[in-house]
Simulated scan of single mutants.
Amino acid sequence: MAVADLIVPVFNVILYEIKEAYFSHSFLNYTPICSLVIALIYMSLDCSVWLTVTFTFDRFVAICCQSLRSKYCTMKTALKVITAVFILSILENIPFYFIFEPREVINDVPWYCYVKSSFYTSPTWVAYLWFETFLTPFAPFVLILLLNTLTIKHIIMANRFRSKLRGSNTEACQTDQETENRRKSIILLVAISGNFIFLWMINLVCFICIQFTDDQFLETDYNDSFTIASRSGYMLRCLSTCTNTFIYAVSQRHFREELKNVIARPFLAIANIFKL
């Protein structure tokens, strides 16, 4: 999931935004390559979002479904799920490659990507855009909220049952490490849901507005309020992948330990060389 989140700024920021700002006449602006990069942008976003959903489901099974836990929460299942998400994300976003046409042709070479006018009027493209928006981010909104709500409810009920079993000993309740771990899990799950919904909300609202107004995506008039809102939503959407990595990975103790080992390993190797 961290790799998928890292791919998003690579395609969105480096190969698209930085390229547009500083290398506007590079080979990346050939229409076929430009179209491919934009398709990869949407592919990377879908991978990031749906791996977040699958990770949330994995936590739900691990906490709430003890009978299914031993069968589902395995390395083999994780590999299958991750592979399926990547393949389906690629297949789902192939049509984005075909929505662009050259903005201009210089010496028989097509330059830049311009959205075809039929993209906003063709029933097929409109249906595809609705389908794409339903899959990302509407369905993830619902699934993450539902799964985290059920998980939090299960944790609260388990804490109440545990407190009754331990009795009314206030000191024992205060030093209960299992209850403290569950409390941290609730905070983590709430942060996950709130982060994802907040950072994707503007993008979703802009899409809904497009269906009932004359506004369009990829507008370049930065004096227009809708353009400012849509670009802000785009920025926050990219930011969500960074915060996902932090919440899911950096907040985990085992990940922090492995990260420390990776950072310390070169210094340990140098120290061993001097000892020799």
Rank of each mutant, 00 (worst) to 15 (best):
I144R: 01
F119V: 10
L28Y: 09
E178M: 12
F57C: 05
I106T: 05
R253W: 11
S118G: 01
N93C: 11
H254Q: 14
N107E: 09
F23N: 07
Y30W: 13
M235C: 14
I14A: 14
D108V: 05
I7E: 08
Y22P: 02
V115S: 04
I270C: 14
Y114W: 14
N181T: 03
L129E: 12
M75Y: 07
P32E: 09
F226Y: 10
V8D: 00
F246P: 00
I99C: 09
N261M: 09
T83I: 08
M1Y: 08
F212S: 07
T121S: 15
F98T: 06
S70T: 14
I90R: 03
Y97S: 02
A84S: 15
D5C: 14
E104L: 11
T227G: 01
L188T: 01
A39I: 02
Q66G: 01
T149K: 11
I82L: 09
K80Y: 14
R160Q: 11
I273G: 02
L236M: 15
P102N: 06
E20F: 04
D215A: 12
S118P: 00
Q252R: 12
N148M: 03
V49I: 10
M235A: 15
V8C: 01
F131V: 02
N272F: 08
Q177D: 08
V61A: 09
V142N: 07
E178I: 09
S230P: 00
F86C: 13
C47H: 07
V49W: 00
W130F: 13
E104S: 12
I202T: 11
I99M: 15
N244G: 01
F134E: 05
Y128G: 02
F267C: 06
M75Q: 15
V115N: 05
S26E: 08
T220A: 12
T213Q: 07
C238I: 09
T241H: 10
Y234K: 05
N272M: 12
Y112H: 13
S117H: 07
M157F: 07
A62N: 06
K153C: 09
E132Q: 15
V61K: 03
V49F: 08
L189P: 00
I18R: 07
S168E: 13
F86H: 13
C113H: 04
L6V: 04
T52F: 06
